[in-house]
Design a protein around this nucleic acid. Structure first.
Lengths: 176, 176
DNA sequence: GTCTATACTTCGATAGAC
DNA sequence: GTCTATCGAAGTATAGAC
C-alpha cells in the first residue's frame, strides 16, 4: 500500500503499471491481485489512505494549536515544507483530482472527497475566526494552494511555493 | 488537428487513443500517421496550436483594450465565460501541464512554455500599472486561476469560477 | 495522399503449482 | 498466502494496395 501510494503520486495513475508497484513493493506481480481485485480498487485504497492521513494531520493540529488563525498558518507552513516534493510531483490531492476527472467510472468522486475535506477544514477555521464569508475564503485559500502547487510543479521551482505562502500568510493575518 | 485538440482536452492525453482522434476527425486510423509520425508529435502540435491561440487572443486584447488593468479584467471575464467548459474538462493549459509533468520525455517543457506565456502577459500588465512586484502579482493571479479551475472541475461547479473571478476583480481594482 | 489490414508491444488480469 | 507463467485486450505503429 505504501509503495502504491508513493508510485501513484510520482508517476501518475495512468502511467503506473501494477508491475511498477509490485517491483517497488518487492512482491511478484501476481501477488498484487491477492489483495486487490483490480487496479481501480488499488487506486481507491490509495485515495482512502490519503484521506486517513489528512484526518490524522488535522486531528493533531486541532490538539496542539488552539487559535484557528494559527491552524491556517500551520497548514501554510506544512505546504512550504513539502515544497520539494510538490516541485517534483505536484500536490498529491490535486494531481489525483486532475487526472481522475478524465475517467468515466466513479473514481473521480472519491478523489473529490479528499479535496472537500481540505476545504471544509479551512472553512471551519475561518468560521471560528468569526468570518461570515468563510466558505468563499476557504475556496480562495485552497485554490491559491492548488494553483501554486501546479506552477511549482510545472516550473520545477520550490521557491514559488515559499513566496506564495508568504503572501497568503500576510493575507490570513490581514483578515479581521 | 482541431479534432485532436478537442479530444485531448476532453479525455486527457493518456486516455486518448489515436483511434479516438481518427474517429472524431472522420479519417481512418492509418491516415493519422501520414501527418504525424508518432502520438507525441501530435500532442506537441496540439500544444503549439494552443500557444498560437493564446497569442491571437492577447494580440486582439492589446489592440482593443489600452489600460493594463482593463486587460487583466478582460482575462478574468474570458475565464468566467469559459466556466462551463472548465467545469467539465478543466483549464486546457493546466490539465496539460499537470498530466505531461509525469512524463520522462521533454513534452512537459513544451506545456510549461504555454503557462509561461500567460504569466508573462499578466506580468507585463502589472508592470505597466507601475507595480514593482509585478512578477509576484502575476504568479498570484495565474495560481488563483489555475487553482479555481481545478476546483471548478473537481466539483463540476461553474459558479466557483464566477465567485472567485469576482473576488479577483476586486483585488485587481484594489491595487494602486 | 488515402485507406485496409496487421504486426508488435504493453499491460491488466487469471490459472494453477507450491 | 506466495509465486510463475500466460492469456486476452487494447493501442501504437507499419506495410502495402489503391
Amino acid at each position: 500500500m505504501a509503495a502504491a501510494s508513493r508510485v501513484l503520486h510520482e508517476q501518475g495513475v495512468e502511467k503506473t503499471t501494477l508491475a511498477d508497484i509490485a517491483r517497488v513493493a518487492e512482491v511478484p506481480l501476481g501477488n498484487v491481485y491477492y489483495y486487490f481485485k483490480t487496479k481501480d480498487q488499488l487506486v481507491e485504497a490509495a485515495i482512502d489512505a490519503h484521506a486517513l492521513n489528512f484526518h490524522a494531520m488535522t486531528a493533531s493540529l486541532d490538539l496542539h494549536t488552539a487559535a484557528p488563525r494559527d491552524r491556517l498558518k500551520a497548514l501554510l507552513r506544512g505546504w512550504v515544507e513539502q515544497r520539494e516534493l510538490t516541485a517534483r510531483y505536484g500536490c498529491p490531492t490535486g494531481t489525483l483530482c486532475s487526472e481522475l476527472d478524465k475517467r468515466t467510472d466513479g473514481l473521480d468522486r472519491v478523489a473529490a472527497e479528499v479535496m472537500r475535506l481540505l476545504i471544509d477544514y479551512a472553512e471551519r477555521q475561518f468560521r471560528s475566526m468569526g468570518r461570515s464569508d468563510s466558505h468563499e475564503l476557504a475556496i480562495a485559500l485552497v485554490a491559491a494552494y492548488q494553483g501554486i502547487s501546479l506552477l511549482t510543479n510545472t516550473f520545477r521551482d520550490p521557491e514559488l511555493m515559499t513566496g506564495e505562502c508568504r503572501r497568503l500568510e500576510r493575507w490570513v493575518d490581514s483578515l479581521a
